[in-house]
Write a protein that binds this DNA or RNA. Sequence first.
DNA 1: TATATACTTGACAAATTTTGTCAAGTCAAA
DNA 2: TTTGACTTGACAAAATTTGTCAAGTATATA
Lengths: 98, 98
Amino acid sequence: MENSFGETIRKLREGNNLLLREVSAKLEIDASVLSKIENNNRIAKKELIKKFAKIYNVDYNKLLIIWLSDKIVNELKDENNIDEILKIAGQKIKYGKE
Amino acid sequence: MENSFGETIRKLREGNNLLLREVSAKLEIDASVLSKIENNNRIAKKELIKKFAKIYNVDYNKLLIIWLSDKIVNELKDENNIDEILKIAGQKIKYGKE
DNA sequence: TATATACTTGACAAATTTTGTCAAGTCAAA
DNA sequence: TTTGACTTGACAAAATTTGTCAAGTATATA
């Protein structure tokens, strides 16, 4: 099953035996922010994704997909008719409509 | 085929033979903002949807679905792997993960 | 028990984005 | 060539997001 962005990068950090403060230094953000991101209490800003991919040596696009799907979840999690909304969104994008 | 939120409310306004300034007065926004919304140059803020539904006497949920799908389109329109992202987002929501 | 280390949390400030206002513009009809 | 309907762009105001900092928890270890 797919993981959240936070879980994903936490596992990557642990797998690489790195400390929060080591990674946050490389990301140039405060360790508290990284903590929140890993715990899904904040959404990482998009430019951080490239840095994560580089630090953990993983595919940027895979991280991006996880991050984007999390953003969609955030936008829709309290709504109804999720499947219909996603279907319509997909169609609109496919047919170049907006 | 599904229409954009802007097209939708423009058609509704025209079908009701109302002027931009008449509707914008009811919405309590400047006519220029409504113009931009109808032309998809701005996204309406969510609270406006209720007002639109009331003014045009249409189902709130239908408008909401159109508006939300537009927001998703906006978020994904310049990305790749759209179908995968939408699929994953749907799964995450369904299984209560985020 | 005390000290250190890793991480978490919340309040606030700074930065960014969104939204509203206004003035000037286009365009078509009268 | 004036009027009415709408559009556009620049800017200000408001709201949201992001970063900073200080204090907190939890665990391990001397």
